[in-house]
């Protein structure tokens, strides 16, 4: 029984992979055919790769990842540094000793891309400490992209919101100054935390940071909400949080993969025209 359910899950995952593969391949083909001699895409970004039906529609904004795109052009390799409390919640579980799901999805779907994931997730670390460690890891590993799961520990540890916001903002700015792209993976959705004031304040703070600093945030909270709704709407029983979390790991990896794929081929925003001097 267990085995058959696992087989079904495996089949479903493979089908999803094929679907993603198709869409990504199409996106890549379109992106590649539209490249100018410098290798920069000159057409609108290709449609983002799909995620499996169960994961619903996550709202991933188009945020360019210029440093990762450059790495892809130059070396056909993107180095991703994963940092934060739970690598599973960013990279997906790499079952049976396989690489994390995120690496599998990206490598299968972006032809010739070599993804190197440097996992430096340590549990319990608050944003301030993680920020300091992150700088060291950047100096040692030279990543193109940092995936940073941040906020949950600070929310549970009752870190004042302004301290949290300051720490994350400083680190994000430092990364930008050092030509490293960053994707923030936000807080987890749980029904019982929807009324937790501090949890929600940290979540709102993360939203403010990503908006102000124009960095990509994978909305784990919203994604899990979508997942819960999708499961309910598909006629399945009300999902318990535990099943939601397990399913959520794979969905999160898909969201992150989609965000990276979109970001790699997104056009950088046009520089604003210099405003006329005012008196």
């Amino acid at each position: 029984m267990e085995r058959s359910s696992n087989d079904k899950r495996l089949m479903a995952r493979r089908a999803a992979m094929l679907l993603i593969a198709g869409v990504l391949a199409l996106a890549l083909w379109r992106g590649a055919s539209a490249q100018d001699p410098a290798g920069k895409p000159d057409t609108p970004p290709a449609p983002p790769p799909a995620v499996t039906k169960d994961c619903g529609e996550a709202n991933v904004t188009v945020t360019p990842l210029p440093n990762s795109a450059l790495a892809l052009q130059k070396r056909q390799q993107v180095k991703i540094l994963a940092i934060g409390a739970s690598s599973a919640a960013m990279l997906g579980m790499g079952h049976d000793g396989n690489p994390p799901l995120l690496e599998e999805i990206l490598e299968r779907n972006i032809k010739g891309l070599d993804v190197e994931i440097i996992n430096r997730s340590y549990s319990g670390e608050l944003a301030e400490a993680a920020g300091e460690r992150l700088k060291i890891e950047v100096a040692l590993n030279h990543p193109d992209l940092v995936l940073w799961q941040v906020g949950t520990n600070d929310a549970f540890a009752q870190v004042p919101v302004e301290n949290f916001e300051q720490s994350v903002t400083n680190t994000v700015r430092w990364l930008k100054d050092h030509n490293v792209d960053v994707i923030l993976v936000g807080l987890h959705y749980m029904k019982q935390l929807t009324k937790d004031e501090h949890y929600q304040a940290i979540r709102a703070s993360l939203q403010r940071i990503t908006a102000a600093e124009s960095v990509l945030r994978i909305t784990r909270y919203e994604a899990m909400e979508v997942l819960a709704r999708t499961m309910r709407e598909s006629g399945r029983p009300e999902p318990r949080d535990f099943g939601l979390t397990e399913a959520g790991y794979d969905c999160m990896a898909q969201y992150v993969a989609r965000a990276i794929a979109v970001g790699l081929f997104a056009k950088p925003p046009k520089p604003h025209a210099t405003p006329p001097p005012t008196r």
Binding site: A85, S86, S87, A88, A89, M93, G94, H95, D96, S121, Y122, S123, G124, T152, H188, M190, Q192, D241, F242, L244, T245, E246, Y249
Partner: peptide, 18 residues
């Protein structure tokens, strides 16, 4: 406490998921 987030603490997620 009906909170699966705790299963992720301390690098424990792998022990429960794999």
């Amino acid at each position: 406490f009906d909170n699966p987030l705790i299963l992720e603490w301390h690098n424990a997620a792998a022990a429960f998921q794999d």
